[in-house]
Amino acid sequence: MEPLLIKVIIVIALFVVTLLVALYATFAERKVSAVMQDRVGPNRAGPFGLLQPLADGVKMIMKEELIPALSNKWLFIIGPCIALLTSLMTGAVVPWGGPIKIGDQVITLQVADLNIGILYIFGVVSMGVYGIMIGGWASNNKFSLIGAIRASSQMISYEIAMGLAIIALVMTTGTLSLNEIVLQQDEGWANIVIQPLGFLIFIICAFAETNRAPFDLPECETELVGGYHTEYSSMKLGFYLFAEYINMFISSAVIVCFYFGGYNFPFQHELAELLGLSSNALSIIQTVFMFGKVFFFIFFFMWVRWTIPRFRYDQLMTLGWKVLLPLALANIFVTGLVMWGMGKI
């Protein structure tokens, strides 16, 4: 097969898988929130309520579409498109499993092994702010505008701490390629052991970046109706909500790649040797493990959401600038000291 065709297949597969995971993440969110509150959750559509996402989707599409008369129509439409597009784009550099060999073809389960993968993720994630900002501004609604301003300032603030947390990781790994980072964790320890503080800062910032509780101020219902998507209805609202779940999925995948060994699992080579697995079979098991880890983190996101109450806005900013930023800087400093002490630089 042509390499280009293989890439196209991988791209489409990733697209479909991302959408499916996001679709069922909405379902999982409702189920998780239900069981944590001693409820049952959706269980009517299909067996165990498994068709609930479809019912939700049909409902979303069937709803009347309203565009406010005094809004900027084009920007109003572009907003959710950017939000969904950027969230879908980030998945491109995540390695989903080991290489698969068919004949003498080697297929990497990754859309693009960029040597600047981390930078790419940060660039695309930063663009995600535009989706929210444009949507909130174009709505011509004060609640939307406040929500959008909150979202953008929150995302910009937390990107700094996030970036600095990653810099410490880049110092220890010496690469910006996600695939390289994952492969290094196969040989040595998972990065969580080396960078526990960096992980903590990164995951807190990931919560803030995805606008999830306890940092869901941009859309806090009690203050801002719906935040930046107050004026949105029908599938455009669906796009925003969907983008949030895709972001959650991708950030889980990125967390797994950065700190939890990506698709690797402990004693994988010993296991493969013991059972006499071919490298292809091992790659498939690795992919399963990758998704297992990602699903755990999606669950973790939901778990946190249904546990912790929302921060106040000044608390959010205090945490971002006065706590996480100094911590991230200290983390870089200590990492540098330790590396210097070990003679690595």
């Binding site: 944590m36 778990w303 249904w306 546990t307």
Partner: peptide
């Protein structure tokens, strides 16, 4: 936060009120 998360996790296995 961890103690809170422990509490919510415990509730997963509790009897449902529904």
């Amino acid at each position: 936060i961890f103690s809170g998360m422990f509490i919510t996790f415990k509730h997963i296995f509790m009897k449902k009120a529904t």
